[in-house]
Simulated assay, not measured.
Amino acid sequence: MKLENYISELLYRYECVTIPGFGAFLTSTKGAQVHTSTNAFYPPTKMISFNKQVINNDGLLANYIASVKKLSYDIALIKIETSVFEWQQTLNSNAILTLKNLGEFWLNNEGSLQFNPSQHVNYLTSSFGLSTFVSPEITREQLHKEVETIEKKTPITLTPEARKTAPSYLKYAAVFVLGLSVAGSIGYNYLNTQTENAIVAEQDAQEKVTQEIQNATFFDELPLELAPVQLTVTKKVTPLKYHIVAGAFRDENNAHTRVAELKEQGYEHATILGQNKFGLWQVSLQGFEENREAERFLFKNRKAITGIWLFVSE
């Protein structure tokens, strides 16, 4: 049985897939990148890492194999153990263990397990169909302004004309027009004065009316006091998506016992998440809204409590 095929299928949907007795594959999202020197564009990806300390069975892989292969849960566990035994034999013979679409494993000189993830598969479903591509560099044309030469215009010379003497009857006409202008100016000033006086009188009357309105009393009694209104604001609690799971049990009593043990150790937020789709009662150390906070908590407490893993609720 190619166990790596089932692991690969689960990594598309989960951020942690544990192989009992061997370790756990973890994923983390990496944003899109641009390589400035090669002009290569890389889509968002889901990077794979491996944690050899997470070896406890969470039931995810075994239940998935059992449902796909139409096997019982116990038979699926036996098949997983058989595959893990074969992997360990390959590693103990100083050979490289290659798991398709996952990566390569080997033992260094000190006997420590090493892992090199595969770069051929992107497990981020939102990036489906996106591939790496290289775009040629864009060159922008620079526009240069051309300076136009302005020709000097020839200066215009003004030639004075000879003055002509106006006839005498034009002089009398000018005097008559001047008289009409003076009379019109006097009449216009008189009309303006009368208009301004009327406007001032109207403004005074308006101010008196406004003052009387302001001094008037509209209430014979004090206004009624309204009773205070109390509003109850209910804060909407968003369910936490990321949980650090410390075990999964078929018996609910065992799950309650595990929660009590964790609280005695100082983990006050320990609780039972409920049953998963495989019928196991999952015990959570603590829940988080952000993935980074959950990973930070996992890294900090993985030595104190072995076998914990990150669970993402759907």
Rank of each mutant, 00 (worst) to 15 (best):
Thr238Asn: 07
Ser72Gln: 13
Tyr188Lys: 06
Ile55Asp: 01
Asn108Phe: 08
Lys277Arg: 12
Gly184Ser: 07
Ala40His: 02
Phe311Ala: 14
Ile80Arg: 02
Gly103Tyr: 00
Thr18Val: 15
Gln88Asn: 14
Pro223His: 01
Asp251Cys: 02
Leu113Tyr: 06
Gln33Arg: 14
Pro117Leu: 03
Lys30Ser: 09
Thr45Asp: 00
Tyr190Asp: 00
Pro160Ile: 07
Leu310Lys: 10
Val283Lys: 03
Gly59Arg: 04
Glu86Asn: 15
Glu221Val: 08
Ser168Pro: 15
Phe41Gln: 06
Ala227Asp: 10
Asn5Ser: 08
Asn39Pro: 00
His35Glu: 04
Ala40Ser: 09
Phe219His: 04
Thr210Pro: 02
Glu212Met: 12
Lys152Met: 13
Pro167Gln: 15
Lys30Ala: 12
Ile156Asn: 10
Ala304His: 11
Leu280Ala: 08
Asn108Cys: 10
Leu191Tyr: 09
Gly59Val: 04
Ala32Thr: 04
Glu9Phe: 03
Gln33Met: 11
Glu289Ser: 13
Thr195Ile: 08
Gly279Asn: 10
Ala62Phe: 05
Leu97Met: 10
Leu61His: 04
Phe128Lys: 12
Thr45Val: 06
Ser118Asp: 05
Val175Lys: 08
Pro155Gln: 09
Leu143Ser: 14
Gly59Phe: 02
Gln206Ile: 13
Asn254Arg: 08
Ser118Pro: 00
Glu314Asp: 13
Val84Ser: 12
Asn116Ser: 13
Leu158Tyr: 14
Lys100Asp: 00
Thr82Phe: 13
Gln142Phe: 11
Lys152Ala: 14
Ser28Ala: 10
Thr36Glu: 01
Leu298Lys: 14
Leu60Met: 05
Lys303Asp: 15
Lys70Ala: 13
Lys30Ile: 13
Lys100Gln: 02
Gly59Pro: 03
Gly266Pro: 01
Gln33Glu: 12
Gly287Glu: 05
Gln265Ser: 10
Tyr42His: 06
Ala227Tyr: 04
Ala216Tyr: 11
Ala227Lys: 11
Pro155Trp: 07
Glu293Asn: 14
Pro20Gly: 09
Pro239His: 07
Gln286Val: 11
Val283Cys: 06
Glu295Arg: 15
Ser28Phe: 07
Ile48Ser: 00
Asp220Tyr: 04
Leu60Thr: 02
Ala32Glu: 08
Ala32Cys: 07
Lys208Val: 11
Leu298Val: 11
Val237Cys: 01
Lys241Ser: 12
Asn56His: 10
Ala76Ile: 06
Gln53Thr: 08
Thr157Glu: 12
Met47Pro: 00
Val17Pro: 03
Ser131Gly: 06
Glu295Asp: 07
Pro117Cys: 04
Leu222Glu: 06
Phe219Val: 03
Tyr267Phe: 15
Pro20Asp: 09
Glu293Thr: 08
Glu225Ser: 03
Asn57Thr: 04
Gln53Pro: 00
Leu124Trp: 08
Ala24Lys: 01
Ile272Thr: 09
Gln286His: 10
Ser49Leu: 01
Thr149Ser: 13
